[in-house]
Design a binder for these strands. Structure first.
Lengths: 232, 232
DNA sequence: TCAACGCTTCGTTAGCAGCCGAAGCTTTTT
DNA sequence: AAAAAGCTTCGGCTGCTAACGAAGCGTTGA
C-alpha cells in the first residue's frame, strides 16, 4: 500500500497547516486581489502584533505561497503566483454544497463578476472564456490557451487600442476553475492583461468593499458585441 | 476593509487544520479512490492507534469531509462527496510549478489515466470530456453536464450494453479540474457511471500500486472509435 | 548626525492538540 | 452465556506553536 499521489501526506499536511491559523488565512485572503501589501498592513488585517505577523509571513514565504518585493525599509508581500490564487479559490469547494442552499445570501455582484487574483472571474469570466473558445478566438492547447489573430480585429473595433490588442497575442492564458460557476474562466498572463485593459477602458469598475467587479452599461454593451452576455 | 469572500478566515483555517495533521491527510488520501474503509484500516494506514484514529475520524466527519456507513460493529468511512475529492486534487495546485521541472519523474501512467474519486481523470479523462463536448454528445449547461441521446447509439455500438447506456441519460455530470492537465474532465454521477462501465467491460484495468488506470489495447481501440485519443 | 520608522529576531509564557493505554459499549461469534 | 472483535470515550502526559514585549538592525527623513 505505497502512497502514490500528486501529494503525499506530509506535503498535504504542510499545505494545510499554512492555512490552519486564522491570522495566516486572513493574510492570504487579503492578498487574493493581487495587490502587494507591506508587513505592517498585513499585521493589522490579521489582527496580530508586528512580531507575530513577521513569523507568519516568513512561514508563508518559506512555504512558497507568497512572493516578496523589498523596497527600502518596506517589505511588500504578494501571492506567489496565480496557481496559489486558483488554489485558494478552490478551497471553497467543500463548502459548495452547504452554501448552495444559502446561495441567495451570497453577494450577487460577486457571483456576477469579480477578480480572481488579477483576472476576471464569475459569470462574466466564464461567459467570456466559453464564448471566445466557441468563436475560435481562444485556442485551448495542452500548453494553455492563446488568443487567435482573428480576435484582435474584433477587440479593436470594440474599443481596445490596437497596440495592446496585438500584444495580447504573445501572452499565454490558462483555465482557472471558477468556484461559483464550477466551470473554467480565463486566467494566466493573458487573462490578467485582458481584464486590466477592460478596467483601464472603463468597461469594469472595482467595488470598494470586496473583490466584485461592476460592469458599466457601456462595458456591457461592448462585451455583448464580443459575444459575452450575462444570462440574467 | 470588511472581508467578503467565498470563505472567511475562520472557515479557511478550519479547513486547513483538517489537513494539517499527517495522520488525517493520510486517511483522506487513502479514500481518494472512492472506496469505503473501516476505522481500523484507516488507523493502520495513518500509522496511529485506534483511539487516535477515532478522534481524527470524528473530526473529519464533523467537518463534513467524510461520510459514514454503519454496519454492525464496523463503521465505514468514505469521502463525503466528489466536491471533497475535487478539492483534494486541487490541493496539488501550489506544487504544480515546483514539480513541473520534475514532471518526467512523475508516474507517466498516472498522468495518462487515473481515478479522481471514482471517475476517470488524466489525459484520457480530459480527452474524453473534450471530444464528447465537441461532438455534441455531452451538453454543458449551467446545471452541469448531461449525455445527449445521440451518444447512446455510439456507446452501444462500441460495446456498451444497451440498458446501462440508456440509464446514463438520466445522470448528471459535472466538470472537475484535472491537476495534471489543468483542464476539465467529466466527474459527478455520470462520470462515475461511465468509468465504472468501462472498467466492467475491461477497457480499463486498475493498477495495484496506485490510482492509475491502465487502458487495455482493446479499450484503446474502442475509445478511439468514440473519438477519444491519447495525444502521444 | 540623530530620531523616527518598519520590520525582524530573541526569549518567554500559555494554551491547545496529538498521542496512547485502559475501560466501556455494542455486535458478532462460539 | 461467554468470549472475541471493532470502535469510542476517558484521563493524563507531552510537545508544538502562537502570542507578545523588548531589543536589534537597516532605511528614511530632519
Amino acid at each position: 500500500m505505497t502512497e502514490v499521489s500528486p501529494l503525499n501526506r506530509y506535503q498535504l499536511a504542510e499545505l494545510g497547516s499554512m492555512l490552519a491559523e486564522p491570522a495566516r488565512a486572513a493574510m492570504l485572503l487579503a492578498l487574493m486581489d493581487g495587490t502587494m501589501r507591506p508587513a505592517g498592513e498585513l499585521a493589522r488585517v490579521a489582527g496580530v502584533s508586528a512580531a507575530t505577523a513577521s513569523a507568519h509571513l516568513k512561514r508563508l514565504l518559506d512555504g512558497g505561497l507568497l512572493g516578496l518585493h523589498e523596497q527600502g525599509r518596506h517589505r511588500y508581500f504578494r501571492l506567489a503566483n496565480d496557481d496559489v490564487a486558483a488554489w485558494l479559490e478552490a478551497m471553497a469547494l467543500p463548502h459548495a454544497n452547504r452554501t448552495a442552499s444559502s446561495a441567495a445570501a451570497r453577494d450577487p455582484a460577486l457571483c456576477r463578476a469579480r477578480t480572481c487574483y488579477r483576472h476576471l472571474a464569475g459569470q462574466l469570466g466564464v461567459a467570456l472564456c466559453e464564448a471566445w473558445l466557441e468563436r475560435g478566438w481562444l485556442h485551448a492547447g495542452s500548453d494553455g490557451m492563446s488568443l487567435q489573430p482573428a480576435a484582435t480585429d474584433a477587440l479593436v473595433s470594440a474599443g481596445f487600442e490596437a497596440t495592446p490588442a496585438l500584444q495580447l497575442l504573445r501572452l499565454r492564458g490558462r483555465g482557472c476553475l471558477d468556484w461559483t460557476e464550477r466551470r473554467l474562466h480565463l486566467g494566466g498572463p493573458l487573462g490578467v492583461a485582458i481584464t486590466g485593459a477592460m478596467l483601464d477602458a472603463g468597461w469594469l469598475r472595482r467595488a470598494h468593499r470586496n473583490r466584485a467587479l461592476l460592469p458599466t452599461p457601456d462595458g456591457l454593451r461592448r462585451l455583448a458585441k464580443l459575444g459575452v452576455r450575462l444570462d440574467t
